[in-house]
Computed example of a mutant assay.
Amino acid sequence: MKSLTIQEINTIINGAVLGETVHTITGLEQIKKANSNQATFIGNRKYAAMWADSKASLAIVNDTIDLEPGNNRVIIKVKNADLAMAKLLEVFAPPAPYFETDIHPTASIDASAAIGEGSRVGAGCYVGKDVVIGKGVILYPNVTIFDETTIGDHTTVWSGTVIRERSVIGSHCIFHINVSIGADGFGYRPSDDGRGLIKIPHIGNVVIGNQVEIGANSCVDRGKFSSTILGDGCKIDNLVQIAHNCILGRSCIMAGSSGLAGSVTLGDGVMIGGSASIKDHTTIHSGATVGAGSGVMNDVAAGKTVLGYPATDSREMLKQWVALRKLTR
């Protein structure tokens, strides 16, 4: 078990220390659940009142929040408590699952595949023809990588993930459990006789940049003609759908259960709230935000925040909600 003094912790997060304690810190916990050997954090004023009853001996606190440490307890004030806590979470994180051998004997790896130095391939993995895997890549058990895919250095792929043929994956990416990359897009048209549906083949691929993280059970479909693209630094939550030929700029965020229909374009830094739905062939420009549960039917201007169904300017939508509430009184 790791144990750090207050001074050692402050060396990591570089804040202003208030108070003293005899306790060392062996872990991190929520403010209501923490014990005397654990640290907690307060990044919002609404949690400040909970500090008096907390058993934690250390709180990492935003420097805009006025709070006293109390007896045998310490506060470390920082500019951003969330970012400071992220540094500590890395320190206290348990070790990754153990690999007894770099390449498990039950892994099926085509003779034409190239596996980079220091990469690990777990039990039951399949690596197809002409796949190129960079240095320090980790494929946890039961990952499938189909033909002609390339994966950059230090990317981690968790169990159950399937990466279809010809995908291009960048470096330092993380794909969580059961991610689907490069499946066929959802494309059908009525048959000439009107008695069935004709499947539209999708012959493109998926291109994913560097430092992209995709949550469990999310899907990124391949392009109909060219590529579905996720730019560097995009962060995708669980249960997200990204359809064929979508293009995401740099550092976009999509929260859980949100979805993009085909050929949607997101600029840089776009934020999509949970369960939001974006109509096909729509462009959401850089810096825009889509509120949770919204349905976007039209293009969204740069920096604008929209919400509601159908989504409109957030201020206008809030006025509508207030007016509707008044009608019910």
Score class of each variant (00 low, 15 high):
residue 167 S to R: 12
residue 88 L to I: 13
residue 37 N to W: 02
residue 229 I to F: 00
residue 242 I to P: 01
residue 8 E to F: 07
residue 30 Q to H: 15
residue 57 S to W: 10
residue 154 H to S: 10
residue 227 S to K: 09
residue 198 I to M: 07
residue 273 G to L: 04
residue 162 V to L: 14
residue 155 T to F: 07
residue 203 I to C: 13
residue 138 I to C: 07
residue 244 H to M: 13
residue 272 I to H: 03
residue 106 T to H: 06
residue 110 D to I: 06
residue 108 S to W: 11
residue 209 G to Y: 04
residue 63 D to F: 10
residue 194 G to I: 12
residue 328 T to G: 05
residue 117 E to M: 04
residue 237 D to H: 09
residue 318 L to A: 14
residue 46 K to A: 07
residue 311 A to C: 08
residue 187 G to N: 13
residue 17 V to R: 05
residue 326 K to R: 14
residue 148 E to Y: 08
residue 9 I to H: 08
residue 82 D to Y: 15
residue 183 A to G: 14
residue 256 G to A: 15
residue 208 I to R: 11
residue 33 K to L: 08
residue 312 T to D: 06
residue 216 A to F: 01
residue 70 G to T: 05
residue 200 I to D: 07
residue 141 P to R: 07
residue 313 D to E: 06
residue 142 N to L: 08
residue 286 S to H: 00
residue 139 L to G: 04
residue 99 F to T: 03
residue 322 V to Q: 10
residue 275 S to G: 11
residue 326 K to E: 15
residue 222 R to T: 06
residue 102 D to T: 01
residue 67 L to F: 07
residue 257 S to P: 08
residue 183 A to W: 05
residue 241 Q to L: 11
residue 231 G to S: 09
residue 178 N to Q: 14
residue 310 P to A: 05
residue 216 A to I: 03
residue 262 G to L: 09
residue 92 F to A: 02
residue 219 C to E: 11
residue 12 I to V: 13
residue 259 G to L: 10
residue 178 N to F: 10
residue 320 Q to T: 12
residue 306 V to I: 06
residue 49 A to F: 05
residue 191 S to Y: 00
residue 73 R to G: 00
residue 300 V to C: 00
residue 127 V to A: 09
residue 284 I to Q: 00
residue 175 F to T: 01
residue 69 P to K: 08
residue 65 I to S: 02
residue 179 V to Q: 10
residue 297 M to K: 08
residue 31 I to E: 12
residue 59 A to K: 13
residue 297 M to W: 15
residue 208 I to D: 13
residue 239 L to R: 02
residue 224 K to Y: 11
residue 98 Y to S: 10
residue 316 E to S: 07
residue 58 L to F: 14
residue 127 V to S: 07
residue 307 L to M: 10
residue 151 I to C: 07
residue 114 A to I: 15
residue 165 E to A: 15
residue 56 A to N: 03
residue 25 I to S: 05
residue 272 I to M: 05
residue 18 L to A: 15
residue 148 E to N: 14
residue 13 I to T: 03
residue 316 E to Y: 02
residue 220 V to I: 15
residue 292 A to Y: 05
residue 158 W to M: 11
residue 19 G to F: 01
residue 315 R to M: 12
residue 160 G to M: 02
residue 304 K to H: 00
residue 17 V to T: 15
residue 133 I to P: 01
residue 235 K to T: 04
residue 245 N to D: 15
residue 177 I to V: 15
residue 134 G to C: 04
residue 200 I to R: 03
residue 311 A to Y: 03
residue 202 H to V: 13
residue 82 D to C: 13
residue 83 L to G: 10
residue 285 H to R: 01
residue 33 K to S: 08
residue 314 S to R: 02
residue 14 N to F: 11
residue 15 G to R: 14
residue 265 T to C: 07
residue 198 I to S: 04
residue 182 G to F: 11
residue 199 K to F: 05
residue 118 G to R: 11
residue 270 V to Y: 00
